[in-house]
Simulated assay, not measured.
Amino acid sequence: MDSALILGSLPFALGIVMFGLGLGLTLDDFRRVGQHPRAAVVALLCQVVLLPAICFGLVLAFRLPPELAVGMILVAASPGGPTANLYSHLFGGNVALNITLTATNSVLVVVTLPIVVNLSAGYLLAGEAKLGLQFDKMVQVFVIVLVPVAIGMLVRARAPEAAQRLNRPVRVLSVVVLVAVISAVLFGERENLADYFVSVGLAVLVFNLVSLLIGYGVPRLAGVEHRAAIAAGFEIGIHNTALAITIALSPALLDSAEMAIPGAVYGIVMFFTAAGFGWLLTRRARLNPTP
């Protein structure tokens, strides 16, 4: 990725995505954790602890090259994406819980993501030039993640009509931005693309399917009701790949095109697998109604 224009625009592009997320949030979305304590706690534990651990096992099992392996961990450590809300709505999930989980995890990720990335990079890149997110880089993660969200929430609180008008265009723009970022990554690495897909494609697919299954299955085993479990499934299975790609590519952060590849591939795969997963859940619910 030697295009200065693309690299320079990445934080701005992610800012649009996170600003759009903020436009849909209020302080009540954070307070709502208390209304769904079991669902929220189980889903957040899956997202923050279980998923990175499983992903670490997968990258070792698939014997991925170190940079691609760290890129996979970066995806696992990223919060759910705004797209999860849309899928949850389409397939009968508890969208309010989705919004609550996205809001909460977007705050937690400022601490959890650097910890997970540093631990994995310390092991996987042993003997090589180590990359990590030191304190000053954690501050930058804080700025690119939380500041746009806070601005979006402020607009929602102070000018709700303007926020409502902006909400749909910014959501559409967020999808366009995600597609553009993924396309830029794939184009920049086009010479190595076939090798990367061979190396990481199957691992990404397996991890994505496992994420969706864990996101739905673990809450159900914990006694969470069906609609809340659907919400958790999409929240855990659909990651904010724009964040993972931005952190991987930004010269001030990880500055690694290879680490961005898993995020780009995941960003493509998840749209199809999430749709199939939602269809299966809907079909199963029609055949066997569950509480």
Rank of each mutant, 00 (worst) to 15 (best):
L125I: 14
L125W: 10
G127E: 08
G127K: 10
G127L: 10
G127H: 09
E128Q: 12
E128V: 04
E128I: 03
A129C: 06
A129P: 07
K130Y: 11
K130G: 10
K130T: 14
G132M: 03
Q134L: 11
F135Q: 04
F135V: 06
D136S: 10
D136H: 09
D136R: 10
K137P: 02
K137Q: 13
V139R: 14
Q140P: 01
V141T: 06
V141S: 05
V141G: 04
F142D: 06
F142R: 07
V145F: 03
V145T: 09
V145E: 02
V145H: 01
V145N: 04
V145L: 13
L146A: 03
V147N: 05
V147A: 11
P148K: 05
P148I: 06
A150N: 12
A150S: 14
A150W: 05
A150C: 14
I151E: 04
I151S: 02
I151K: 05
G152A: 05
G152Q: 02
G152D: 03
M153A: 10
L154V: 13
V155W: 04
V155K: 05
A157M: 15
A157V: 11
R158W: 07
R158I: 07
R158V: 11
R158Q: 14
A159M: 15
A159V: 15
A159G: 07
E161R: 13
E161A: 15
E161H: 11
A162Q: 15
A162N: 13
Q164P: 03
Q164R: 12
R165P: 01
R165G: 08
R165S: 07
L166Y: 08
L166H: 05
L166M: 14
N167A: 15
N167M: 13
R168K: 13
R168E: 08
R168V: 09
R168T: 10
P169H: 09
R171L: 13
V172H: 03
L173K: 06
S174N: 06
